[in-house]
Nucleic acid binder design. Structure first.
Lengths: 174, 174
DNA sequence: CATTTTATCTTAGCAACTAAGATAACCAGT
DNA sequence: ACTGGTTATCTTAGTTGCTAAGATAAAATG
């Protein structure tokens, strides 16, 4: 069963249908990437959550467990478990902050991170090569589109979250 | 902390950097959509897994629990729980197959599904409107790009899964 | 120095998941 | 119709990642 809509052969497609197809294809690709993450995580001996956290750690500077909890919405207790697993697997080290000895920095282990990058490069090798086909002008369009698409997803999430809060927060008193 | 890379102001960007930025932006958007799904699920009183399964149910024809298990990789026991929750929330009904009374069809409840669609339309309203900006020619490029991107994700997942199987399956004997 | 706040970890309990088996229906072959 | 084997779903026991609440230790405040 394919989630992605196919282009109808021969028949001319209306603009609305084309837009709909674009949206569905993006959705499908997004779902597929989530699947990819899951497979990658299990290959690395991690959970999907762990891999997500590791991603955040490698992007930011001097990320702490508390910071991770904020970013992911997990409790600090859960983060302790996540960090334990990632550390045990060798991808990060816990390093005490010397200026504030309560805090930890989650320090990525460069060579292990590079292993992951190598896997990703291998898996997406064909795709990366395929990008060469695009001219600078086309790349302009794609970059602009990708930016807008990202912003749309962020805004949609914020909007939805606001809606949820508005409805659900009638908990105490009356 | 933003996961999405920003375009460096003023300085001219190399082609490699632009491709890298495109890739990162797509990744970030994908992650953001996953987040959106999570918020939506909790708004509907479902788990992320449930919502994913519901999505599969609404796409396919006459989807059975067994089919869901295949598609998602979950065990049939887990699927029983998933189906229980989705049914309890009112989005599907269990309907016995009359020709094979062991089987169930998971029948979407149209009006409840429409509720979800309405939420999505509301959240992504601005984005949907924004798509009007693209000419037919630009839409061609975007559609082609989205198709390729989807295929790439599928292939990457397959490739990674094959690699994992090849390495991990030295379990018994020696 | 006492109090409060902050950062991380610990503990108890919950719930979704897996693995294995139960149940029931279908499908041969005799 | 009976017997054995397969298939579809559900049930049960046990594992584990998560939350909530509290413990611990260090820093900030006064």
């Amino acid at each position: 069963m394919s989630v992605k809509p196919q282009k109808p052969t021969a028949l001319p497609e209306s603009r609305a249908a084309r837009l709909e197809r674009l949206d569905r294809t993006i959705r499908a690709a997004s779902a597929q990437r989530t699947l990819y993450s899951g497979v990658l995580a299990s290959k690395l001996g991690l959970h999907q959550t762990d891999l997500e956290c590791l991603f955040i750690i490698t992007l930011g500077e001097k990320v702490t467990p508390g910071r991770l909890a904020q970013e992911t919405g997990l409790t600090t207790g859960a983060i302790t478990g996540v960090v334990d697993r990632i550390e045990r697997a060798g991808y990060i080290r816990r390093v005490r902050d010397t200026s504030d000895r309560r805090r930890l920095f989650l320090e990525p282990v460069a060579e292990k991170i590079e292993e992951i990058r190598a896997i990703n490069r291998r898996a997406y090798h064909a795709w990366i090569r395929d990008l060469a086909r695009y001219s600078e002008e086309e790349l302009d369009i794609l970059l602009d589109f990708a930016d807008r698409n990202y912003e749309a997803a962020v805004n949609a999430t914020i909007k939805l979250r606001r809606e949820s809060r508005g409805e659900e927060e009638t908990p105490k008193a009356g």
